[in-house]
Simulated scan of single mutants.
Amino acid sequence: MRKKIVAGNWKMNLSLEEGQSLHKTINSELEGASANCEVYHFTPSIYLTSLINEDQKVQVGAQNGHPEKSGAFTGEISMSQLKAIGTQAVLIGHSERRQLFNESDSFLKEKVDAALSEGLKVFFCCGESLEQRENGDYNTTVVNQLKNALFHLDSTDFQKIVIAYEPIWAIGTGKTASPEQANEMHQNIRKSFAHAYSKEIAEDISILYGGSCKPSNASDLLTQSDIDGGLIGGASLKAEDFLAIISTYK
Rank of each mutant, 00 (worst) to 15 (best):
I92G: 04
A114C: 08
I92N: 01
V90R: 08
E131W: 03
P215T: 02
L100V: 11
T43D: 10
N148E: 15
I245T: 01
E31A: 14
K109F: 06
S247C: 02
N135L: 11
S106K: 12
L91C: 07
H186M: 04
H41C: 13
E203F: 01
Q224T: 07
E166Q: 05
A202P: 08
T173V: 09
E203T: 07
I163A: 05
T140C: 04
C126P: 02
N27H: 05
F123I: 14
A235W: 00
S178R: 11
I163C: 04
L16A: 08
C37E: 02
D154S: 10
S34M: 14
V6S: 03
M12E: 11
G211A: 11
A164G: 06
L14D: 03
D157C: 10
A239C: 14
I232F: 01
K147E: 14
L116W: 02
L146Q: 10
E31L: 13
I161C: 12
N13Q: 15
S80Y: 02
V90E: 01
K11C: 09
P44E: 08
I227D: 04
K24Q: 12
G210N: 04
E31R: 13
A196T: 05
I5Q: 00
P67Y: 14
Q81D: 14
K24A: 15
P179T: 07
P167T: 02
L208C: 08
I46D: 13
A244W: 00
C37R: 00
H23E: 01
Q132R: 13
I77W: 07
A149L: 08
A114P: 09
G65A: 12
D157V: 04
L116N: 03
E29I: 11
N13R: 09
K3N: 15
Q88S: 13
Q159I: 01
A196H: 07
S45C: 14
S178Q: 10
C125V: 05
